[in-house]
Amino acid sequence: MSTTEILFFFLSALALFSAIMVVLSKNPVHSVLWLIAVFFSISGHYILLNAQFLAIVNLIVYAGAIMVLFLFVIMLMNLNAESEPQKHLWMKLAGVVSGGCFFLVLVSLVRQAADMTDKMALMGDGNIGLIKNLGKALFTDFVVPFEITSVLFLSAMVGAVVIGKKE
């Protein structure tokens, strides 16, 4: 077993375990912290694929910014395990049904990906994830979608400011 394989299995186990703990934790703050652990292990996978830029951006954006805001909201609303309202039975039922539907889609996806068997991911080499190649691809081949995304971001920002300004 090479170091890469050991790291891969370790990170996968960590990601799955943390993801399960996100769902199982009673306390929302603990859920958020487990979710941060999931992001870390996924960033580890990115590094194994030599996509260093994606790995660190995943950390900065998700773990560093979005999850901080999540924590912020949860802490301000003081959602503790005790104060969490008990959910209705039909709410739980709806959750089970929608979760089951999602699971079905996932299973069918995995089954359709039969042509991916016997193929290895490029571990440690392949340099499309490095910042130079990624930037070139974004600004030449994909420049229109990229710019459209930035306009989308701008409108979201303006929208947030408008909502925030409303008295």
């Binding site: 941060i36 951006v57 950390l59 910014a65 901080v68 912020f72 802490m75 490095l130 910042i131």
Partner: peptide, 23 residues
């Protein structure tokens, strides 16, 4: 190859120490 972004990522994680401790 992403040196300074790494610093940025770590700095943005530093805030968790304060938040978790305070909460």
């Amino acid at each position: 190859n992403i040196g300074i972004l790494y610093v940025f990522g770590v700095v943005s994680l530093g805030v968790y120490g304060i938040m978790i401790g305070g909460w």
